[in-house]
Nucleic acid binder design. Structure first.
Length: 186
DNA sequence: ATAATGATTCGCT
DNA sequence: GCGAATCATTATG
């Protein structure tokens, strides 16, 4: 939870095939097993997919939804605790042309990273990077530190796309930077 | 072995 | 605003 807010304003960097892309994290969501029904590891359900989430914090949990989109999470719990933060949106700061080129229809000039599925495509992240550590510049993806944001710049609200999670769908575990135009809407 | 479905996005009405 | 696309993972026989 706290970590989800602390990640706002930090910089996500990818180095894929020597191509560097940077983006400020502007939107996140927190997922916390075992009690959170929206979490894949609800009730500590341990499968081949969720195995990554049970690791020590600092690695990436990446998986495919709808057969189409890769979603990127940062594992934040200690070993055996399946806590993770979904990265939902980025504000590009470097490599924007590379990101545009990676999108399906570059000529249409879509926003390049305003949703969890879009940003992984823009950054060149795929599930083959699942489990990668994100604390070192030697890795293909990592997080660069930045000053924490003032509390009044952080907005908290309900998470998106988890209507099946019953009472958990109303919990305000989605966070974004106030007035940032790169935040996905809805 | 087979069947159901989702932490979404894009394109068309 | 609505629905299709599309497949790895999960649940079930």
């Amino acid at each position: 939870m706290q970590i989800a807010q602390q990640l706002l304003g930090k910089v996500l960097v990818s180095n894929i095939n020597g191509k560097i892309c940077r983006g400020i994290i502007v939107e996140t969501e927190a997922y916390k097993a075992p009690e959170d029904k929206a979490c894949h590891a609800h009730l500590n359900r341990f499968t081949k997919r969720t195995e990554t989430m049970f690791r020590e914090g600092g690695c990436a949990y990446i998986y495919l939804v709808y057969g189409i989109h890769n979603l990127l999470n940062i594992v934040t719990g200690h070993k055996g605790m399946a806590h993770a933060v979904l990265i939902r949106a980025l504000e590009p700061v470097e490599g924007l042309e590379i990101m545009i080129a990676r999108r399906a229809k570059p000529q249409k000039r879509y926003q390049v990273s305003n949703g969890p599925g879009s940003l992984t495509k823009a950054m060149g992240i795929s599930k083959s990077l699942n489990g990668t550590t994100i604390l070192s510049k030697r890795e293909p993806i990592w997080i660069e530190d930045a000053a924490s944001l003032a509390r009044d710049h952080i907005v908290s609200t309900t998470r998106i796309g988890i209507d099946y999670a019953e009472e958990w769908k109303d919990i305000p575990w989605r966070f974004y930077i106030k007035d940032n135009k790169w935040v996905s809407k809805k």
